[in-house]
Computed example of a mutant assay.
Amino acid sequence: MQRIGVIIGTTRDARFGGKAAQWFMDLARQRTDLQFELIDLRDYPLPFFNEMSSNLHMPTQNAEGLRWQKKVGEFDGYVVIAAEYNHGPSAVLKNALDYAYVEWVRKPVAFVGYGSVGGARAVEQLRQITIELQMAPVRSAVHIQGGDFMQIMMGQKTLEELSYLPPLVTNMLDDLAWWTNALKVAREQN
């Protein structure tokens, strides 16, 4: 069974990402074709990237960076739970992406975005970043819109009440499963 790492892309005390990740994991674990593991960036306190180069060219020296690389290298694909901060992804997420390279190559990635426009601008930037890391971002994504996001944050609504989201999750994970299988076969042939 293919292993998918689900990365919570924020670390703030008041983050929404943990709530979104738990909701997503509850849906994802209903599948029988993929195995999911939650990866919380809070558990990987990476300093700002200050290596001589990415680990494509030179080994990482930072112990926490090496621990992160080992963890992300365990997976066949990824789902990133991505907040939108000022029209882009969080700094800690970008930093975590920069700390690995070899581990990401030729693996698929999907996104669950949230924020004022469903995190769409952050997800769009993340697609560009992950392409540069030689990943394969899938077209389908899940976007938790700003109005819903704010009502959930204020306790007026729950993610489970948003009936438009589960079909989006299913579609995204169907795409991710296809790409995960196809790319794993291709990686194993090299």
Score class of each variant (00 low, 15 high):
Met52Tyr: 13
Phe16Met: 08
Pro108Gly: 01
Val72Ser: 02
Val72Ala: 02
Ile39His: 00
Arg187Met: 10
Arg121Ile: 07
Asn171Arg: 12
Trp104Thr: 12
Arg139Leu: 07
Thr32Ile: 05
Val185Lys: 15
Leu162Lys: 14
Gly65Cys: 06
Val92Leu: 08
Gln189Arg: 15
Val123Glu: 03
Gln134Arg: 15
Asn95Val: 04
Val105Ala: 14
Lys157Glu: 09
Ala182Leu: 01
Gly65Ile: 00
Glu132Thr: 06
Thr170Gly: 10
Arg67Asp: 09
Gly17Ser: 02
Leu176Arg: 07
Ser116Asn: 09
Val185Ile: 13
Lys70Met: 10
Val6His: 09
Ile7Asn: 02
Gly119Tyr: 01
Tyr44Asn: 06
Pro167Ala: 03
Leu173Lys: 08
Asn62Phe: 11
Pro137Trp: 00
Ala110Gln: 12
Glu37Pro: 07
Gln22Ile: 03
Gly18Leu: 05
Gly9Thr: 10
Leu38Trp: 08
Asn171His: 11
Asn55His: 09
Leu165Gly: 02
Asn50Arg: 04
Val80Glu: 03
Asp33His: 00
Lys70His: 14
Leu173Val: 09
Gly17Trp: 06
Leu38Cys: 08
Asp40Phe: 05
Leu168Glu: 06
Ser116Ala: 09
Ile8Trp: 03
Asn95Asp: 05
Ile8Glu: 03
Lys94Trp: 10
Val80Trp: 15
Arg3Tyr: 03
Gly9Arg: 09
Ala141Gln: 04
Val80Met: 14
Phe24Ala: 07
Phe16Ser: 12
Gly88Val: 04
Glu51Phe: 00
Arg12Leu: 07
Thr60Leu: 15
Glu37Tyr: 01
Gln125Ser: 06
Arg29Ser: 15
Asp43Val: 01
Arg29Gln: 15
Ile129Ala: 07
Gln2Val: 06
Asp33Gly: 03
Gly147Ser: 15
Ile152Tyr: 13
Thr170Pro: 05
Lys70Asn: 13
Ile39Asn: 02
His143Asn: 03
Lys71Cys: 00
Val80Thr: 11
Trp68Leu: 00
Pro45Gly: 01
Glu103Gly: 01
Arg15Val: 02
Leu183Val: 11
Asn86Thr: 04
Gln128Leu: 12
Gly18Cys: 03
Leu173Gly: 05
Ala82Gly: 04
Ala100Cys: 07
Val112Glu: 10
Ala186Pro: 07
Met1Val: 14
Thr32Met: 05
Asn181His: 15
Gln134Leu: 13
Arg3Thr: 02
Lys184Cys: 03
Glu124Asn: 09
Gln134Asp: 15
Met154Tyr: 12
Gly65Leu: 05
